[in-house]
């Protein structure tokens, strides 16, 4: 389903400041799989997620999702691809702090110009699923870390994506909330979604529903 072919990514702010985030990485992810990308900070996990989500383009190599060359997509098509296929849970959640829970979750649906009933149905459904409906009118800046994460998860699922990408999802959560998140992952996995989680949180290691754990270091896969 997802194929990364000889991917390299170099961040270059100027000639003297080049950071190689990924070095000639090739890997496949199957539909319905739950994969853990493990490794310390700077190992290239987030970059890999970013390339799969078409948030950035590789310096070389190709990202193919369902036969589409994502890495070659023009910006407009990349956005459409993201909207239709990807649910991204960011480490810092990337919510708009002054917007309400409901409005933050609605964001991916706005460009679709759905009818009010349809849009509300989608939003209500994910708010209930991720137990945040009771806070729907509250600005997200007033929520706790765990609640903010539930909003981020709800937003990532509101467009019913096939692929869920989570970048250090428990980095800002305590153990109890992290375990709750793991339960949410289990539920998403049961819906046959392809899930890739970048983490170095030991709570994820050895979980029975995780299909593969991939170790990364200095932009390379450790086999």
């Amino acid at each position: 389903m997802i194929e990364l072919k000889n991917i390299s990514k170099i961040y270059e702010s100027n000639e003297n400041n080049r950071v190689t985030a990924l070095k000639d990485v090739s890997i496949n992810f199957k539909e319905g799989e739950l994969i853990l990308l493990k490794g310390p900070s700077g190992s290239g996990k987030s970059t890999m997620l970013s390339l799969i989500a078409a948030l950035s383009k590789p310096t070389s190599g190709e990202v193919i999702v369902d036969t589409k060359r994502i890495s070659k997509l023009a910006d407009t098509f990349a956005a459409t691809y993201r909207r239709n296929n990807i649910g991204f849970i960011f480490q810092k959640y990337n919510l708009i702090p002054n917007l309400s829970v409901e409005d933050n979750i609605l964001l991916p649906l706005i460009p679709l110009n759905l009818s009010e009933d349809e849009a509300q149905k989608h939003v209500k459904s994910v708010m209930e699923k991720f137990h945040i409906a009771h806070k729907k009118e509250i600005a997200v800046k007033s929520l706790s870390g765990g609640e903010q994460q539930r909003v981020a998860i709800a937003r990532a699922n509101v467009n019913k994506p096939k692929i869920i990408l989570a970048d250090e999802p428990t980095a800002n959560l305590d153990k109890e909330l992290s375990l709750k998140f793991i339960e949410i992952l289990r539920e998403l996995k049961s819906q046959n979604k392809t899930i890739i989680v970048a983490t170095h949180d030991p709570l994820f290691f050895g979980l029975d529903f995780v299909d593969r754990e991939i170790e990364m270091l200095n932009g390379e896969l450790l086999v």
Binding site: T76, A79, F90, L95, L107, P111
Partner: peptide, 16 residues
């Protein structure tokens, strides 16, 4: 800037 980034990350096109 961050807000524009978020909007794009959740699937907004440049034209949106």
């Amino acid at each position: 800037k961050r807000e524009v980034g978020i909007l794009k990350a959740v699937g907004w096109r440049v034209e949106d």
